[in-house]
Design a protein around this nucleic acid. Sequence first.
DNA 1: CGGCCGATCCACT
DNA 2: GTGGATCGGCCGA
Length: 194
Amino acid sequence: MKLSKEFYLRDNVVEIAKELLGKYIFTSFDGKLTGGMITETEAYEGVTDKASHAYGGRRTARTDIMYREGGTAYIYLCYGIHSLFNIVTNREDIPHAILIRAFMPEMGKEVMQNRIGKTSLNKKDGDGPGKVSSLLGIHYSHSGLSLLGNEIWLEDKGHHPPPHLIAATRRIGIEYAKEDALLPYRFIYNVSGY
DNA sequence: CGGCCGATCCACT
DNA sequence: GTGGATCGGCCGA
């Protein structure tokens, strides 16, 4: 079933990031359904987090989306090439967000492989935040969409990752955040097989 | 208005 | 292991 608004409105963005492992992300653009299970996330803890785009209460045309109500998509362009998909959490005006870094392509694989110009998909193809968006057809112009709508949404399909397969590590590519770069805000679901 | 650089990826060595 | 691609956001002048 689709994750509810209440799921996203909670306070603890780090806990929510961990809970997202094993949940499913779906998109439906142009009648093409694609999706799969989330296997890696990173929490960004808003105004107190030096790695967050909203650190210190910074608010611009781009980051304004992060201040919306939980359950909104925040998507931005990175390195001029990649659209990175984030989930806004907490109440309006509290700019918490969770970056989806990896998922396992499952539904609509043919559509997804066409999107990246391949003839098959392996487990590496959904590993990386830029790849997540390219497979699912997510573009930075989708920033601001509600995750309670019918274009991008998440579902709980009753899969609960065994705790011993979940690892917490420091986040990637945020060395400029100094001491906050050490926080264990990245969660990885070590899925074997596929 | 100019310049720097990023929550990355891939090809190539 | 490394560097180039590529461009919007952001900040300072």
